Simulated assay, not measured.
Amino acid sequence: MNLNCNIIQDLLPLVVEDLASEDTVKFVNNHMDACSECNEEYMKLRDSNTSYKSTNKPETIPLQRIRRRLKNRNIYIGILSALIICLSLVIVLNIATKPIPLSYTEAIESTKVEDEKLYIKFNPIVSNYSIVSYGSNHDIMAWKTNISNFFGMGDPKNTVINIDNENLTIVNYISQADEPDKLLYGKVDYDGQITLPRLATNYYLLAITSVFIIAMFLYLLFKNTNKLKNVLKIVIIFTLSYILGHISIFGGSGATHHIIRDLCFVITASILFFSIIILLVYKKHFRDQNQ
């Protein structure tokens, strides 16, 4: 075996695994046309689809497998990075658009009754408002957001409520702040009540935290039982994800005036936390499955 044969046989694994350039393949083929020994070695490698083994060197790692590992690692890093970016965007979006309740004096510029209609004009600071009606009672809430406050995106808003004197229409402004609620129209036996934010999300957090603690205890108790341990691990990750999602959206408080909106943010953040933790916990499994 001459020097050219040594070079050719070093290149054979690349040719067999389709990793060589066209010029290299042409060079190897030209040599094998005149060299039966190299051609025989090529046929052997092609049929067995194994890497070339040198008699004086340890077994080399197939380059195709290395390339596949690098590709899988890049996919893993890409997915993980995308999830972290999405989670960051959800948290930032929540902070930017989180409703900040306004008191009556902050929100209402003027009110007037005309032609059995109540006209309400809001201050420019108001970014949005809602009217919750039940029967002839109407509760009005208004708020601003950090993004509207920062960019001055608020604009004057007006609304009109029809007055039904036969059914004794009552219109309240729900202050949601330190000030008591304000009666805008009608007569009530009570006055000066304060509407507090809802704390329902704290009860959800308490329930999930209880499940997390129980799952942790059972995981330690049955750590030698693989099937049960794997199920408990998923439960732990799920509950931990919700706890992290709640904290990332509410911080240290679970008080909310917009429970559906806030729960949507919590659930979205929890799903992203769950996906990130799963990728981190099962990183080795993910890589092994794709080798």
Rank of each mutant, 00 (worst) to 15 (best):
M1D: 09
N4M: 11
Q9T: 07
Q9D: 06
Q9N: 08
E17C: 08
D18Y: 08
F27K: 14
H31V: 14
M32F: 01
D33M: 15
C35N: 05
C35I: 07
N39G: 10
E41P: 07
M43L: 13
N49E: 15
N49H: 15
Y52I: 02
Y52K: 02
T55S: 12
N56W: 10
I61Y: 06
L63R: 05
L70K: 05
I77F: 14
A82P: 13
A82L: 15
A82K: 12
I84M: 14
I85L: 14
S88L: 15
L89T: 15
V90I: 14
L93I: 11
I95Y: 11
I100Y: 00
P101N: 03
S103K: 05
S103Y: 01
S103T: 04
Y104L: 04
T105P: 01
T105L: 04
E106M: 08
E106H: 06
S110Y: 09
E116F: 14
K117S: 05
N123P: 03
N123Y: 10
P124M: 04
I131K: 00
I131R: 00
V132N: 08
S133T: 06
S136A: 10
H138E: 01
D139P: 00
S148D: 10
N149R: 05
F150H: 10
F150E: 11
F151Q: 07
G152V: 13
M153A: 11
P156K: 10
N167V: 08
T169E: 01
I170S: 05
Q176M: 06
A177M: 00
P180D: 01
D181Y: 01
L183D: 02
D189E: 11
T195H: 08
R198F: 14
V211D: 07
F212L: 12
A215C: 11
L220Q: 14
L220F: 14
F222G: 03
N224A: 14
L232P: 04
K233L: 12
I234A: 11
I234S: 09
V235P: 03
V235Y: 09
I236G: 14
I237P: 08
L240I: 06
I243F: 14
H246V: 09
G251D: 03
S253M: 00
S253Y: 00
I267F: 08
T268K: 02
L272D: 15
F273M: 15
I278D: 01
L279A: 01
K284W: 11
K284P: 08
R287Y: 13
